[in-house]
């Protein structure tokens, strides 16, 4: 039997979808869900921490972490760009590590601690990286910006933890903070407006302050 939760979420997806292609895809899955009779439950309870606050959700298994954050917890700072791991707009931190929230299921994060842009800083209390993006004009339309900021904060931690990158010359030497390193390590965040050089400046300033 199809659980009512699953249908409800499909409807919500349908309403939330703005792009025409996404609407068609959701409508298709909705149609299928109605005809498909399975006995195993298709929703799961999951408990995790979001920006320091414990949350418990009963979710259709299909719900990505991105949709759980945006549609269920109404944390719309995290953006949906491609929904396929290709743009980085959905970047959030899970236990401090950056991931694409669109390519992971919410129910896979039982017990995890998730940080979104809203958790990094607030309008009256900006995270240094948020402030640096403002100061250096690290955006135009701003759509990729939450992902850029979450990604860059975790990226600097990766350098601190001595994780190498594709452009690291010597794998056995400590990782360095150079513009080339920053560019390579931020390649998973696409900016359609091309604000890249200002983004690198913002990150460089924050990195320098920390060092």
């Amino acid at each position: 039997m199809q659980s009512p939760g699953a249908l409800e979420i499909s409807r919500r997806d349908l309403l939330a979808a703005s792009a025409a292609t996404v609407t068609v895809a959701s409508a298709h899955s909705l149609g299928h869900a109605q005809t498909k009779a399975t006995t195993a439950p298709q929703s799961t309870k999951v408990t995790f921490t979001v920006n320091g606050e414990g949350r418990e959700l009963q979710l259709d298994n299909r719900t990505t972490l991105l949709d759980a954050l945006r549609e269920h917890l109404h944390l719309t700072g995290t953006k949906k760009g491609c929904d396929h791991g290709q743009c980085g707009a959905c970047t959030v931190l899970i236990d401090g590590r950056r991931v694409n929230a669109c390519l992971t299921l919410a129910v896979m994060h039982e017990g995890d601690s998730i940080t979104t842009l809203e958790g990094l800083g607030q309008p009256e209390n900006l995270h240094p990286m948020q402030a640096a993006f403002v100061k250096h004009d690290g955006f135009q339309c701003g759509y990729c910006t939450p992902g850029q900021i979450c990604s860059s904060v975790a990226m600097l931690e990766e350098i601190k933890a001595n994780i190498p990158s594709h452009v690291t010359v010597d794998l056995t030497a400590p990782a360095e903070i150079t513009p080339a390193e920053i560019r390579e390590r931020m390649s998973g965040n696409i900016c359609r407006c091309g604000a890249y050089s200002n983004i690198v400046e913002a990150i460089t300033e924050v990195a320098g302050r920390k060092a």
């Binding site: 694409n100 990604s151 994780i163 190498p164 990158s165 594709h166 794998l171 056995t172 390590r185 998973g188």
Partner: peptide, 27 residues
């Protein structure tokens, strides 16, 4: 990032780092 892989199997480190993005490699 494993120290032994970087030292003794650099080819593997390099191939991994050439793939996907930081976010994707974390998962």
């Amino acid at each position: 990032a494993d120290e032994r892989v970087r030292r003794d199997y650099a080819l593997l480190s390099r191939a991994l780092l050439a793939g996907a993005s930081g976010q994707l490699r974390n998962r």
